[in-house]
């Protein structure tokens, strides 16, 4: 594995900027997983048949678009636009295929769905902690710090 990485590393020079290379590859490769995760967490209807179709179409679309834009330079599309476009296509495929081949409702899947109950239980659990041990207070502090840094360098 590492040998492949060693062989591949000098090729990065061809893509121009290293940072653009990192972001571009992620933008084309990751959307199918985002679609499966987001829909899987919030929509009961998403199922295995839908997931299979999504991964197939998503891989082909991502690979095809990557070749067209980055390797062949036939289409001009910034990779930041590629990610939401791919995600929209894959979500549509997931919904369509899941509806076309519906699966029986199962308790195992129900347990994985997002529900407000977990969120409210967490509020009760955190109430007893001090401000510094509460990760929500820490998260808020982090957001404020980030906003300050962004404002300072704007």
């Amino acid at each position: 594995m590492l040998a492949v990485a060693v062989l591949w590393a000098p090729q990065i020079e061809r893509f121009g900027d290293l940072w653009q290379y990192l972001q571009a590859v992620l933008a084309y490769a990751v959307p199918p997983i985002v679609a499966l995760f987001a829909a899987g967490l919030f929509w009961r209807g998403a199922n295995a048949a839908g997931a299979r179709a999504t991964l197939r179409v998503g891989t082909l679309c991502g690979l095809g678009l990557f070749l067209l834009t980055t390797v062949l330079h036939m289409v001009h599309l910034q990779f930041l636009y590629a990610a939401p476009i791919l995600l929209a296509i894959e979500l549509a495929v997931l919904v369509a295929a899941s509806l076309r081949w519906p699966a029986a409702r199962s308790a195992a899947v129900d347990a994985l769905l997002w529900s407000g109950a977990d969120y409210r239980a967490e509020i009760r659990r955190l109430r007893d902690l001090g401000l510094f041990a509460n990760y929500r207070a820490q998260a808020l502090a982090l957001l404020i710090l980030t906003a300050l840094i962004v404002a300072a360098f704007r």
């Binding site: 492949v4 060693v6 591949w8 590393a9 000098p10 290293l18 990192l22 590859v25």
Partner: peptide, 12 residues
């Protein structure tokens, strides 16, 4: 991704 993005970029 580990091979082509993370490892390769770090080595590069």
């Amino acid at each position: 991704l580990l091979v082509f993005v993370d490892a390769a970029a770090a080595l590069y």
